[in-house]
Every structure is written in C-alpha cells, then in structure tokens.
C-alpha cells in the first residue's frame, strides 16, 4: 500500500499500477469537469461544446476524406521541417559542444537568434519564399533549428570528461574518441532532445497553417473559427494532441529499445 508520506518523498518511487491509476484518474477528472461545465449549460455551448458534440464531430471527420487529407499534409510538413532541422542542428550542435572554436562561431549567434520569436518571422518568410509548402517547412525549421542546436550542444558537453580521458588512455585517437565514445555516450540524451523538438515542430506547424494555408489541421481550425464551430476547433486541437502523444510514446519506446544500458530511463 502506498502510504501518504511515501507519495511526498523527494524522488520517491511509486508502483507502476498506482502510477497508471493516477494518470487515468487525472484524465478522467479533466473529462468530468468538462462534462459538468458543458452539459449543465453553465458555459454557453458556443464557447464550450460538450464532449458528445466534439465526439460526433470527430466521428464525422474520421469518415471524411478531407480530414485525412489534412492529417496527411500536416504530418508531411512536420516531418519535412523536422527532418531538415535534425539534419543540420544535430551535427552543428555536436560540433559546438565539442570544439571551442565551433562553439564560439555558433553558440552566441544562435543564443541571440533564439530569442527572436519564430512566429514573427512568418511574414518575412512569406515575403521571401511565398505561400507554398517550402514556406511552412521553413517556419518549422526556423522555430526549431536554433533551439535544437543549443540543446544538442549541451548534450555533447554533458558527456563526462572522465569517459573521454579514459578512452585516450586506452589508446584512442581523436576520431576514435568522437566516434566510439562521444557519440554513443550522447545518444540517449540526443534522443530526448529530438523528442522535445518534435513537440515544438507541431506547434510551429500550426502557427504556419493558421497564417497561410488552405489545407492542414491548422487551416481546419482557423476555418472553424470563422464559422464559430467551436466543436470543430476542439476536435482539431485534440487530434493534434493525440498525434503528438502517439509520436512521443514511439520515441519513448524507441529509447528503451535502443538504449537498455542507460541509467534511469523514462
């Protein structure tokens, strides 16, 4: 039995069952609150549609080809933006976290740009490359790249110096230290960074689609707003949340499968 004092122990443990029960409980509580507020008409249905209405909207959407088209195009944009981000930010981040010179070139500049809100770049991006697919991918890239570079640099820096020195004393050359020690040592944390950035990519996708798109989940939401279809907005947001959750769980699963040696493990 979990005693109360156990629950409030710093870094205390919890049985898996109790943990899952708590998670389900929290979701249920939010759902009940939502139902209470909407079914009792305490809040106008235009502002807060009931779970039933949202469910119905969802069911209708699932049966329509448009909806799946939107899911498809949005996923495509996210994946492309995310791919380009990873392809550039990961190697540059590792360089910046490993070599002082690369750090001097990349990190201060990136820190500076990172504080500029990526959404504010959207008008500029539209001016530069128009309204097509590249623009949306670019918004995601601008939003994620600088963050990711800094995070990957931190991951690389966090690799224990002792580990690197131990490998030197075992006869490793510079390249071997990079390939056989630094890289494998940083992989689990890198995967975590990738997982976080995936979340960011979805946020920026929606931002891009809200501004300038005629397809995608973001577009679906903004169109629903025009017609005051709150149930549709709710559904759109929930679908995006669920897609994010699925991808997140996939990452977590992959992490466990790929790095059974890592301490802790989420």
């Amino acid at each position: 039995m979990e005693t109360l004092s156990n629950l409030f122990k710093i870094r205390g443990e919890m049985s898996r069952k109790a943990y899952l029960a708590t998670v389900v409980g929290t979701f249920a509580a939010v759902f009940v609150l939502w139902s209470l507020l909407s079914y009792s008409q305490l809040v106008d249905p235009t502002f807060l549609p009931s779970p039933g209405t949202v469910g119905k909207t969802f069911w209708h959407s699932v049966l329509s080809a448009d909806f799946w088209g939107y899911v498809g195009i949005s996923s495509y944009r996210v994946l492309m933006g995310y791919l380009f981000t990873c392809l550039l930010a990961i190697p540059l981040g590792i360089l910046a976290g490993t070599f002082k010179f690369a750090e001097a070139v990349l990190v201060p500049l990136t820190e500076f740009i990172r504080y500029m809100p990526a959404t504010a770049f959207i008008p500029l991006i539209i001016v530069w490359i128009g309204l097509g697919e590249p623009a949306k991918i670019m918004v995601i890239f601008v939003g994620c790249f600088f963050q990711m570079l800094l995070m990957v640099a931190d991951n690389a820096r966090a690799v224990s110096n002792d580990l690197l020195q131990a490998s030197y004393t075992l006869g490793a050359g510079k390249l071997q230290v990079l390939r056989k020690v630094l890289l494998p040592a940083l992989l689990p944390e890198l995967m975590n960074t990738m997982r976080l950035i995936m979340g960011w990519a979805w946020s920026y996708l929606i931002a891009a689609e809200l501004f300038a798109a005629s397809s995608g989940l973001g577009f679906m939401i903004i169109r629903a707003q025009r017609y005051l279809q709150t149930d549709m907005i709710f559904m759109g947001i929930l679908v995006i949340g669920m897609l994010g959750l699925i991808i997140d769980r996939l990452f977590a699963l992959l992490n466990k499968k790929l790095f059974p040696w890592a301490e802790g493990g989420r």
Partner: peptide
C-alpha cells in the same frame, strides 16, 4: 596519453553502453 600506460581512475569510467566484456576489449 597512450595505450602503454593503463589508468584506473577513482571515479567510475566504464563505458555504460558496452557490456563488461566489450569494455574489457575496448582497447
């Protein structure tokens, strides 16, 4: 540094992603 001098540190410096055997075979 070089492989002609083996070093054992106070802190644990095994490569966590390698099995005990692979750690021993690393050099």
């Amino acid at each position: 540094p070089g492989a002609d001098r083996g070093v054992v540190f106070q802190s644990y410096t095994l490569f966590p992603w390698l099995s005990v055997r692979d750690n021993i075979e690393f050099g």
